[in-house]
Design a protein around this nucleic acid. Sequence first.
DNA 1: CTGAAAGCGCTAACAG
DNA 2: CTGTTAGCGCTTTCAG
Lengths: 369, 369
Amino acid sequence: MAVKKPSIREVAAYAGVSTATVSNVFSGRKPVNDELKKSVLEAAEHLGYQIDRAASQLRSGRTRIIAVLVPDLTDTFFATIVSRLETQAFAEGYDVIVASSHDDPSVESSRLKALLSWKPAGLIAVPCSSSIPAELIEIEKTLPMVLVDRVASEGAIADTVTIDNREAGQIAARHLLEHGHRDIVIAVSDLDYPPIFERAEGAAGLIAQRTGARPVTLRLGTNMEAGAGIFSDWMDRNTAPGAVIALTNVTTLSVLSALAERRIAIPDRTSIVAFDDYAWMAARNTGLTAIRQPVDQLAETAWKRLQLRMDMGMEAPAEPSVLNASLVVRDSVRDVDSRKPHPVGNNAPDTALPGEGLLTTSRQGKNIH
Amino acid sequence: MAVKKPSIREVAAYAGVSTATVSNVFSGRKPVNDELKKSVLEAAEHLGYQIDRAASQLRSGRTRIIAVLVPDLTDTFFATIVSRLETQAFAEGYDVIVASSHDDPSVESSRLKALLSWKPAGLIAVPCSSSIPAELIEIEKTLPMVLVDRVASEGAIADTVTIDNREAGQIAARHLLEHGHRDIVIAVSDLDYPPIFERAEGAAGLIAQRTGARPVTLRLGTNMEAGAGIFSDWMDRNTAPGAVIALTNVTTLSVLSALAERRIAIPDRTSIVAFDDYAWMAARNTGLTAIRQPVDQLAETAWKRLQLRMDMGMEAPAEPSVLNASLVVRDSVRDVDSRKPHPVGNNAPDTALPGEGLLTTSRQGKNIH
DNA sequence: CTGAAAGCGCTAACAG
DNA sequence: CTGTTAGCGCTTTCAG
């Protein structure tokens, strides 16, 4: 029933101390005698006192807000990142304000403005396109911020956290090559996204090096059904490829959808390496072999960097963090040539095909790091 | 370089008006002469002025914050709701603070407290369990709030938005019955969640009415792999059922996973009706017939109700909104008895099996409302 | 270590 | 319609 909320003053009066002491008890910015502290806490408890963030923020200029901007909350990849960030931030006493740009630069810019008007303590953003918005560049000097995923790791204007996308592409390509595949199509969403471009480069480069020709790269866009149509049309004009590397979650769906519609058997007729590892990929008759991004680790790294940046201030140079993707082997890639299945390098395998890795096993598939 | 942010006063000075006028221009709470308004806007633009939310909030006591609490951001269903809410709220000048309870009541309660300390203008919550947290009951009288999904629609303490879960269960059951299925297993996550309980009730009731026996109900929990194990174990002790109704996104995955592991053909050996309609369900050789919840509509309804509540105040009685799920027909249900395929009712089909509906078609499947 | 007092930037109330 | 003025609740000097 207590409609009226107690302020710091009533707590101070009740505890028989000054407002400054109460403030210090709650903010912890100055030490307070244990006895006093206890009576303040009791008074607060008794009155049901809760600090008023607005007032606190206005006076101190500081905030416990972390702004998070992603292209699309509906995408499990981004949602997972937000979820982890939320958990971490909360544990450290921060609250998270989310905004989604819906992959639209103009929305992104207006959401960004709204986010910044909170004067957040930090910003974690997944920009929606390669061109980092002008807003970000401008505020970069004054606001701790880290950019995740949709950025080129070199030449970044701020701290970045990404996976080694080139390597990720190579892992997929190498897996296919090692299984004797040569007729490989690379399915991408949009080459304007730096990670996609790099994945495509990594995969195409390795394939070219082995086969002497760059593979076909198909742009399927970011809409599953449209992408399925594009891939289907392409198959009309050509034949179904021996294998496809899908460099994105939705391109994976597009490819599967088009393949299913045409009753093309996986992996018997065409093999597939998917991107991003989701639960549904295991819940099929032929589980999907996929490149897994370490999503949780991505989020944790971003959070740690942001904390560092908030502590260090803006002087320290921007630094990129690059994590590694791994391959989860299931059943969607077949052996083309059973005579010499594995080693693909002719004479110097390790120099030709860099990045050998750990091999572990899980219930869901073999995990090759 | 403008490290120092301009306040309302500099804008006022620059535009040659008073601070109150500037305030009115930005808040729109009082009309301002067009000419003055223009010069204020120009001044603001010129100085790069941005309203300080903390100060505004402190003074006015009002806030443009909507608190959103969900059990799990990682679940596409909830993420979609959050995403829609975020969009809607932003369009009306609100910002969204999200919190995830990770399906843990104690986390829920502490997150709730944090959320409330923002003194949000409204709260939209998907509680994590049936027992609505005491905090919510307490604040219900003072804070506009709407509860979504995880609530019983009757006896609610606040505005609620749900689907007709009983009907949803019936739709699934009826579809199977109409295709001649009798050996039906219902796979649920946890019967403590009211929506799940109601879906199970709806399905089981209809099946019992038709077959004279209540179907087996299996509790697979909320973890996909564990659920697959449970279902697999059950099949060890019995045989694979003729059909299964999976009442949840993750139970669907559990069931598929267990079936795939045992190479049980869908729908030839066992048919399946899934819950929640996701992209991957269409991107398979045998597309999944599924109950689709109108997620977007759920979010929009919740937002509209909240707005209403924010306008009306707390006096108006709490009101439940109930939306309808629909059936998306794909290929995972087979005709058991091809002689008399469709009508299941013996003599009075419509009274025995309520809820006939619209029938539309989409690229992805036939959509029976 | 604690208390007194001065605002942070804004909006509400009221007077013009 | 616009200007003046008085705080919102807190944190922060600065003295004690």
